[in-house]
């Protein structure tokens, strides 16, 4: 069943891709092939393979339970928040928070998580910024 949905999704993607390829404005100075041909070839093969997937599906994978799925979704949200807040609060604080969250969700005890998060963050900061000289996001506190 998963594969049928996946195949239909792929087919939709291929159609969308082909439609978008037709929208490309051609410049008047174009080569023989032009910018549309290659994307259209891709869209065709993409569509065909999706069709095969939908018509001859494999056995469904074992999807995680709703709880686990929410877990992953929450991690994605945490990562997005991390990306957004990184330039605002600075590397060390953002990373400590994100690492603490992830290790907590992976099974560390709450207090332990905080410690692991801070250690991860400071450790990366020391190795990558102080030793290797990588430029990391600087927050209002200067780190």
């Amino acid at each position: 069943m998963s594969d049928r949905i996946f195949g239909l999704f792929g087919l939709a993607l291929a159609i969308f891709f082909a439609w978008a390829a037709f929208q490309i404005e051609e410049s008047f100075l174009s080569d023989e092939v032009g910018p549309k041909a290659f994307p259209l070839i891709i869209a065709t093969i993409l569509g065909l393979s999706s069709l095969f997937i939908a018509l001859k599906p494999d056995a469904s994978p074992e999807w995680p339970s709703l709880g686990r799925l929410a877990e992953i979704l929450a991690a994605v949200v945490a990562m997005i928040l991390y990306a957004e807040f990184l330039p605002i609060v600075g590397f060390v604080i953002a990373t400590a928070a994100a690492a603490a969250y992830l290790t907590w969700r992976l099974g560390s005890a709450p207090l332990q998580s905080l410690i692991i998060g801070v250690c991860t963050s400071v450790g990366i900061y020391v190795i990558f910024h102080l030793v290797l000289g990588l430029s990391l996001a600087r927050g209002p506190l200067g780190f």
Partner: peptide, 18 residues
């Protein structure tokens, strides 16, 4: 892994942001 995986994620972010 509960300690390792967050490190992997964070190092990935650091690298791309770098």
């Amino acid at each position: 892994p509960r300690i390792l995986m967050p490190i992997v994620a964070m190092v990935s972010f650091v690298g791309i942001y770098g």
